[in-house]
Simulated assay, not measured.
Amino acid sequence: MVSQKRKTGLLLTGLLFAIIITLLISLNMGTMRIAPLDVWKTIIGQGSDQNQLVLFDFRLPRMIIALLIGAGMAISGGILQGVTHNELADPGILGINSGAGFAVVLFIYFTQENTSSQVFILPLAALAGAMTAAILIYVISWKNGVSPIRLILVGIGINAAFSALIIVYQLKMDPNNFTQATVWLSGNIAGTDWTYTLALLPWLLILLPITFYKAGTLDTLHLGDEIAQGLGTQVEKERLLLLFIAVALAGASVAVGGAIAFLGLVIPHLARKLVGANHRHMLIISALLGALLLLAADTIGRNILAPSEIPVGLIVSLIGGSYFIYLLMKS
């Protein structure tokens, strides 16, 4: 146990160091490159006005958003995998992302406007869509309780239904809104500013501590419903609360960053391989791995074809798909 804690601590320290290094590299790179020394001078308030504008108004808020979404989606996937006892569960497969996406597409379709208040309304719309998907999944899956297998199968069906509805409403949109929805659905954090950070941050500040507090409950649920009940756990009540947390994290993240696939699937899987099945350790490492992966993916997407950009969701899908092909070949 002591060696496992030490291993987790070393890994946590290494990931924090990697995130800081990636942040510094990302601040330096872009259409307008800024030397590392100039980055440091700008951070301490001695840089030029141009460098301050580029770093503090464009790059830094985008990087903070990447860190928040990466952590939120990874934790959401970790919770869903724990609740369903299935390492292939994630917000995308279960229909949570598509439910949130459908709500956002509906909002774009009916408002036809792009105002500053949208930034704060979109997370609420996405949460409503994600909650609608989750309620449908939970109700349809119910049969003297909720079986994890039924939860997965119903979720796949709900995902297909919402994905079809998204396409239907996209085809009804005018060209500008169609383009906005398409770019957003591909997973994109370009154009984000501090307003988006303020819209997303409260969700994570409230929900992540609750998740870490409930890590022991996830460990108990992982033993099976009968054993969990025997240990005094209110299985359905705890499962419902954990599902709500996962849905809220995914919905808020999708609202700001779009439907970024694979993140909630790959990261918990990798974290479990690194630190084991203890959810307290696994969720913390998942949050850091998710933040690091999305930050690195955004840095690559911004620079590999500069001045053009590749949506971060495509980079994550490429990395995630490659990782699972590697696992398949190893197995």
Score class of each variant (00 low, 15 high):
Thr8Ser: 15
Val54Met: 07
Gln112Ala: 13
Ala297Pro: 12
Tyr109Met: 12
Met1Glu: 13
Val275Thr: 12
Val54Phe: 06
His85Asp: 08
Asp57Val: 02
Val247Leu: 05
Ile69Asp: 06
Lys214Phe: 12
Gly129His: 03
Thr233Arg: 07
Pro202Arg: 04
Gln52Cys: 08
Asn177Thr: 03
Glu236Lys: 11
Leu241Arg: 12
Met63Asp: 07
Val104Lys: 05
Val247Lys: 06
Ala271Leu: 08
Ala261Gly: 15
Thr192Leu: 03
Ala89Gly: 08
Glu87Pro: 15
Ile121Val: 15
Ala248Cys: 05
Thr22Asp: 00
Ser26Pro: 11
Ile310Thr: 00
Ile93Glu: 05
Ile108Thr: 09
Ile319Ser: 01
Phe244Thr: 13
Pro61Phe: 00
Leu185Gln: 14
Leu200Phe: 00
Arg302Ala: 02
Leu204Cys: 07
Glu113Val: 10
Leu60Trp: 00
Ser163Cys: 02
Glu238Pro: 00
Gly191Ala: 07
Leu94Cys: 01
Ile156Met: 12
Asp174Gln: 13
Ile319Thr: 04
Thr115Met: 09
Leu53Gln: 09
Ile79Met: 09
Leu198Asn: 10
Asn144Gln: 13
Phe110Asn: 03
Leu263Glu: 09
Leu55Val: 04
Tyr169Pro: 02
Leu283Met: 10
Phe107Arg: 08
Gly216Val: 10
Lys41Cys: 05
Met32Glu: 12
Ile44Leu: 05
Val266Asp: 08
Gln52Phe: 07
Val316Thr: 14
Trp40His: 09
Glu226Val: 11
Thr197Ala: 11
Leu53Ser: 11
Leu201Lys: 05
Leu136Phe: 10
Ser76Ala: 15
Val146Lys: 04
Met282Thr: 11
Ile140Glu: 10
Pro148Thr: 02
Val104Phe: 01
Asn97Glu: 04
Val247Cys: 13
Gly155His: 01
Leu10Ser: 10
Ser48Ala: 03
Thr217Ile: 13
Ala291Trp: 05
Asn278Val: 07
Tyr196Gly: 07
Gly290Arg: 03
Val235Ile: 13
Lys273Gln: 14
Leu274Asn: 06
Ile108Gln: 08
Thr299Glu: 02
Ile167Thr: 12
Val83Ile: 15
Val2Glu: 15
Thr195Met: 12
Tyr196Ala: 13
Ile210Gly: 02
Leu242Gln: 05
Gln52Met: 12
Gln170Trp: 01
Ile158Cys: 01
Leu265Lys: 03
Thr197Asn: 12
Leu288Val: 08
Ala164Glu: 08
Gly82Ile: 00
Gly232Phe: 03
Gly157Arg: 02
Met173His: 03
Gly47Gln: 07
Phe244Ile: 15
Gly14Lys: 03
Ala161Glu: 07
Leu10Pro: 07
Ala66Trp: 04
Leu249Phe: 07
Thr115Trp: 01
Gln229Glu: 15
Pro175Glu: 11
Ala89Leu: 08
